[in-house]
Design a protein around this nucleic acid. Structure first.
Lengths: 162, 162
DNA sequence: CCTTCTATCTTTAGGAA
DNA sequence: GTTCCTAAAGATAGAAG
């Protein structure tokens, strides 16, 4: 078995997906280990257009700071409103159905970014965390986190079964 | 050399620092590899009280520049304009038909994104998710997430290091 | 698709200089 | 602290079921 891979985009679809799945798992494990061994804080977020949801570690709150960085870029804020509406996307999809041509790489990147925008919108990351007024939405958030946790667990436990 | 380590806080200062340094480096390398191999977006932040600055991958500037660059890709802008000029599109229909296979795949993936939106809608994440007291929630949720993560990993790994 | 196997490559703990 | 070393542990590509 020749197992060494060149550090470059894996064009074979099946191979890339398999590698992604294995490596994302490995990455999260490494994060868990380093934070435990050294008692530090860390977070990571991975967007993959072929994943229905981003892989996050350890929680949404944990990655908010990362996403907040994105919102500080003026270009993002401007394009955000333009791209993140579902109706707009549906319209685009219809037209894609008829006529649109794009190169696959460009397409992959667009979807990834749309996914990002959508999550930014859903999570409603403030543009400046310092001005956030801390109300008492703790319970609501906690419930949502539990839902998400359960979803994540379901998804992983179902295909692990050891 | 007995090299197996218990997955727990390393109390010895020198050992912990050495491990941190090595593992942070390894983590960033893994991130670089997965994003290259799969052409996805990812980022991570590691906060260590003994480090003056958090370790960030890639640089915030790096992430921003990549995404900003995409938004300004000439092809992207051109295609957007194309959508608004029917005559131009008709002119291109013949050529587009040659790319039917790509179109179908692209369309399939777009629909997947719309499905994702629907899935997110069911989560019903409140608009004001961000108005949350980080000090109260982050620790609790992160700990819960880590517990879940650890359990998931334990289930999946033959080697037990507890 | 998903799992399991395993050869092979990579990471890293602990020393040593 | 830093860098190099190396054995052991860990991650994973590819194949097979």
């Amino acid at each position: 078995m020749g197992k060494k891979v060149k550090l470059a985009f894996i064009t074979r679809d099946t191979a890339r997906k398999a590698t992604y799945k294995k490596r994302v798992k490995g990455l999260m494990k490494k994060l868990n280990e380093i934070t435990t061994l050294c008692e530090i804080k860390a977070c990571a977020i991975v967007f993959n257009p072929e994943d229905l949801e981003p892989q996050i570690w350890p929680s949404i709150q944990g990655v908010q700071s990362v996403l907040t960085q994105f919102l500080h870029v003026p270009e993002f804020v401007r394009h955000r409103k333009m791209l993140n509406h579902e109706s707009y996307l549906k319209e685009k999809t219809q037209k894609l159905n008829e006529k649109l041509k794009k190169q696959m790489k460009e397409n992959r990147e667009m979807k990834m970014i749309l996914q990002m925008y959508h999550y930014l919108e859903k999570w409603n990351i403030p543009e400046d965390l310092s001005i956030v007024d801390h109300n008492d939405l703790t319970c609501v958030i906690d419930e949502k986190m539990k839902e998400i946790n359960m979803k994540m667990m379901e998804m992983d436990i179902n295909d692990q079964r050891v």
